[in-house]
Design a binder for these strands. Structure first.
Lengths: 199, 199, 199, 199
DNA sequence: GTGTAATCGAGACGGTACGTCGAGTCTTGTG
DNA sequence: CACAAGACTCGACGTACCGTCTCGATTACAC
């Protein structure tokens, strides 16, 4: 994880928490307003009232900073997936929540930039998947496991492919923007996939 | 479309076809090797043995050039979708073909960059959708229409959402790269979606 | 010599002469006003209405640029030392002329900076001596040679040491600024050295 | 004078003498090895095993620190100029001693940097002249006064100009480095100037 | 043939942002 | 208090691309 608070507490001036928050806030605003590639580190430093060196001290690249900035915006509080009793209910709750968080502002192009960077820079890719992708996939995996236990779907279900179907559809609308990412769409997706899996 | 052949035929030195091809080839190679953002116009000009001005005379931006370069690589010859007699067969043929073309080399990060750019620059977005997205969605729409006519799926089927399910899953693996984009995966996706739609 | 006009004339956009002159003028003004170390390349570029890259294209360092800028200001037109018929007259004419050129504006600290840099960077040192030092020493050598031929001073005169006496005294006042560098001082120096050499 | 020992003795931790010496030693070594402008305060602090704040507590600028560092290296013990009985003897002793101290290591470029700084920053200039220049000029003045009293040279001798001739020649070789600063050169300079003044 | 006109290469141009470094200052905990 | 550690602001560094602009040199069609 990037931008850890100083581990070796004690000697030296401690890291400025106000600066950290100003940087993340400035990065968030500019990224959402103009898209990641159109935002310069100079502009972020300027808006945060902070020197560029302070940014580079804690985040090696603009993408890493964007990752942290998004993280604070998009991460839900509860890590535990809800248990509604049905596969459809669980999926709808999880994916609907994500959709609600992601839909309000133009996150699509920022996430697109991060996905693209993750595909180019292996180190960043690992970080991105560990922080953004895996936690959410793990939740869905758990939901599928419960559905299998309940007998809703077969034991042979390919969870990974099914997750790609679910999140793939949502990401497709998020990134391409050719059609709105509504809760109604989420439920349709959940219905088709659940039905397709036998539930 | 960009890079139209000289319309005002007649006076003046005609456009150099070798230069055009060298530019597209250089762009393709560099993009695939390093990712779009890591390729400079200078580098493309250099490798193509061409001056930067010649590139800018015909393509307004790097992304437009990338679009043309990809187009030559990824576009199938036949525009007509195959008719295998079943929804599953038609979808498998269409999506499998696209998968085969896209799988061999690292197209994911280049396409990701274009998708992200399309989400920021409206003009480019229109061009991108017109050239890359719509033709393929139209094919699937036609396939769904045939399936409805055959009675395989209901009249109320939401084709647009279904298309997002299909291409969304494929794009998800293409862009994220967390799992391989195999023909087997394509068929699983087709199976689940077709089953989910009632076929 | 730095900043030669493009040798390989022909292909490509030719170097901008207005830009070159604006850069030298801006460098001159700023250097004299604030001292070399207090002038940034950014400031020079700004005042010249030129991009930094254009400066770096032609001058590798600020010092090299300063050298060229000073050269245009301080170089006399005639390379030939005057022949007044006496050692004192020749020396007074040469050194007095240099003094007049150097005295009007605060050249001292700029020349000091170049001398210091010349002592640190061998490459620059060679350039500095070739362009600034040797031509003037050569003139004095010639004057001494004439004085020897006239019988004013002995054949055994150590010209190099004598030149150091003359220019050393002038540079001392120029760089230290503890006392004014007047024509009267020049003539006193010439008198003492000429007398000391036997003339 | 800079770096006064703590005046307000009593309260608080006393100034660390080891730290002061480590700083001066580190500054001396680095300055001589790389030239003043190429040495950073961070580097000095690092090599001295001291924090930057400690340096800035006692020296306001790098130049002031350099001045103190040089002072310890170059200052002779006896302030009283030797009395050899002749002008030539006195000058040779004084200037030869200075030459010997200055010649061993690359002091030229450091002194050049200080001279240049003195010409730009008035405050530093006063300090520099008071500590480095005036004591030595005063010695020579005294020597000239004795020579006048002895009748070796005329009462009208312009001591200030004569001092510039002597030290100017030495500084010229020290700073420019175009020829070695040997004792032989010193004696030649002394001979010519003494002869030129009538001795 | 002889214009006329648009192309081509080469490469310099004004800009903007990059990521780094040095200067001084400030804020901790420790001696 | 002084000190080490080290984070902070500020501003300059030299480089890399951007997209534009001159050049001289080609290459076609129209007359």
């Amino acid at each position: 994880m990037s931008a850890e608070p100083s581990i070796a507490r004690g000697r030296g001036r401690p890291r400025s928490e106000p600066a950290r928050q100003a940087i993340l806030a400035a990065a968030t605003e500019l990224m959402l307003a103009r898209g990641l590639s159109a935002v310069s580190m100079d502009a972020i430093a300027d808006r945060a009232g902070v020197s560029k060196a302070t940014i580079y001290r804690w985040w090696p690249t603009k993408e890493t900073l964007a990752l942290d900035a998004l993280y604070e915006q998009l991460t839900e509080l509860s890590a535990e997936p809800p248990d509604t009793g049905t596969l459809r209910g669980d999926l709808s709750a999880l994916l609907g929540g994500w959709t609600d968080r992601v839909r309000g502002r133009p996150y699509g192009r920022v996430i697109g930039a991060l996905v693209t960077e993750a595909a180019t820079d292996t180190t960043f890719g690992d970080l991105y998947r560990e922080r953004f992708v895996e936690p959410r996939r793990a939740q869905i995996r758990q939901v599928f496991a419960r559905a299998v236990a309940r007998g809703e779907i077969g034991v042979a279900t390919d969870s990974e492919a099914a997750i790609d179907l679910l999140y793939g559809a949502l990401y497709h609308r998020l990134l391409h923007g050719h059609a709105p990412l509504t809760r109604q769409f989420v439920d349709y997706v959940v219905d088709v996939v659940a039905a397709g899996l036998g539930a």
